[in-house]
Design a protein around this nucleic acid. Structure first.
Lengths: 147, 147
DNA sequence: GTATTCTTGACTAAGTTAGTCGAGAATTGC
DNA sequence: GCAATTCTCGACTAACTTAGTCAAGAATAC
């Protein structure tokens, strides 16, 4: 498998910050509750996002986490790579600086195309896009209940 | 990671059969030596390919393995799925019969596009294509040595 | 000083990957 | 029928990854 709970939870946490973080820091407990993520586990994901510069955190009462940049300037590709590590689909495509390594597998050329397409699509999506989709999903859910 | 040694070795074994299997069965020892694959491990991969109908095997002296269909009629997608299992990049995309499961992750829509693109590309490549590429690679390698 | 909140590293259980090994079954040629 | 060859199958293993948990500690607000 590819995108596990790290990538899923981590991106959901970022979306949560984008949606509800307008008025100051949000606590991890709040994110965990809203997104159904184990709190202790979320800690590690937030730590990675902080170290990579996506969020900043403040301690003490009233503390929490908030985005360091506007959601429209955060792209899904970099956030996912921060959370999951390299997304390369096979070992011989890890950081391809086109230096010939000796492990050139037979299917490399197909997968290089697939990988390039994947990165392009992920780079085109911003956190703002994801938050807008989520907003819409919640709205649709709410109206379907109220009918 | 995605495509491991199962997918790499298994496809290389199929390419080997496509390239050298014209005149009768090829023994696993020969494939293993030519493709640098541990023989005992190759056993399991060949067994899976046999059970999925890609190859047939005969025992006894002079026995070995051969393709069940022309190389041009074997597509990379199905061979890889046989060897590696589902190629879905995230749990919520496993066999998507578009029934709403409750685990809908926020990024699903991007990844569904990526997955569809991936499957289309893999389906368009046949074993004959791969064998031709390999043939060319070996030829280029040989001439570069002889210069 | 106390309560709150984040920070960090150590630890664990379960599952996957990449194999190895050995007993056995089918086939060929004599 | 016997021996050699070759595939078949299931059990086993070591190392690694994933998905967490837990506890001690540091910073901040009041």
């Amino acid at each position: 498998m590819y995108i596990g709970t790290k990538g899923d939870y981590g991106i959901r946490a970022l979306i949560d910050l984008a949606m509800y973080g307008g008025a100051g820091p949000i606590q991890r407990a709040e994110i965990a509750r809203r997104q159904h993520i184990p709190e202790a586990y979320l800690d590690h994901l937030l730590a990675q996002l902080r170290r990579a510069g996506f969020i900043q955190s403040t301690r003490g009462p009233g503390g929490g986490h908030q985005l360091n940049r506007p959601a429209a300037e955060i792209c899904l590709l970099h956030a996912l790579e921060t959370l999951e590590g390299s997304l390369a689909p096979m070992p011989c495509l890890e950081d391809h600086d086109d230096g010939e390594s000796d492990s050139v597998c037979a299917q490399q050329w197909v997968w290089r195309e697939i990988y390039d397409d994947m990165r392009a699509r992920l780079q085109a999506v911003t956190l703002a896009d994801l938050a807008a989709r989520e907003q819409e999903r919640l709205r649709a859910l709410a109206t379907s209940y109220s009918i």
